[in-house]
């Protein structure tokens, strides 16, 4: 299950009543996606722990603001992303100098290279690339999530891709193709 998994109206109503059992059920629904997102964006399990914990707590506390149950996942994802980015800003170290490529890194060499290359990007590049390529967000949604503009998102994505490819394989030149998420 990922962030696109909806919750129903009854579940949202129970969350608004601060029902702990429902909160746990909702946590179990989104925990893997939230954890993966936070680890990939922050590059550290300690930072991911804080981001996911604070993200769920904030989501449960502010759930009264949410009107549509089917938007819960997207709303939670936005909160977790903001938690990761805020923590980076607070640490005055937005660059991933301490990115732990070994965090849950797969055994496969190619995948490990990919994790390492991804970790060498800066925090915003990682966020834009991950949100676009893995989470499937459009540039408009990325701009909204990160409080930036659509042109900024497009430029950042292009630059992040080029950097990551260069880190992965300095001699690789991708063939041009239509992007799956244009706007």
């Amino acid at each position: 299950m990922d962030f696109s998994t909806p919750i129903d109206d009854r579940t949202l109503a129970a969350l608004k009543r601060d029902c702990r059992r429902t909160q746990e059920k909702v946590y179990r629904t989104y925990a893997r996606s939230a954890w993966t997102l936070a680890v990939r964006l922050s590059g550290s399990e300690a930072a991911a722990w804080d981001a996911v914990q604070n993200g769920f707590v904030k989501a449960f506390e502010r759930v009264a603001q949410l009107e549509r149950a089917d938007r819960f996942g997207a709303w939670l994802r936005r909160i977790v992303v903001n938690q990761v980015m805020d923590a980076g800003r607070r640490a005055l170290d937005p660059l991933p100098e301490h990115y732990d490529a070994g965090v849950d890194a797969p055994d496969h060499d190619g995948a490990l290279d990919l994790v390492r290359a991804f970790g060498q990007l800066d925090a915003l590049d990682r966020a834009v690339l991950w949100l676009h390529d893995v989470e499937g967000l459009t540039h408009a949604e990325i701009a909204d999530t990160l409080a930036r503009s659509v042109p900024w998102s497009k430029t950042r994505l292009s630059r992040a891709r080029a950097k990551a490819r260069d880190l992965l394989h300095p001699h690789y030149e991708p063939t041009r193709r239509a992007l799956p998420h244009g706007q």
Partner: peptide, 12 residues
């Protein structure tokens, strides 16, 4: 090689 979707999901 920049296929981020190929990375596995992580268990919390």
């Amino acid at each position: 090689p920049l296929n981020l979707k190929s990375l596995p999901e992580l268990d919390p």
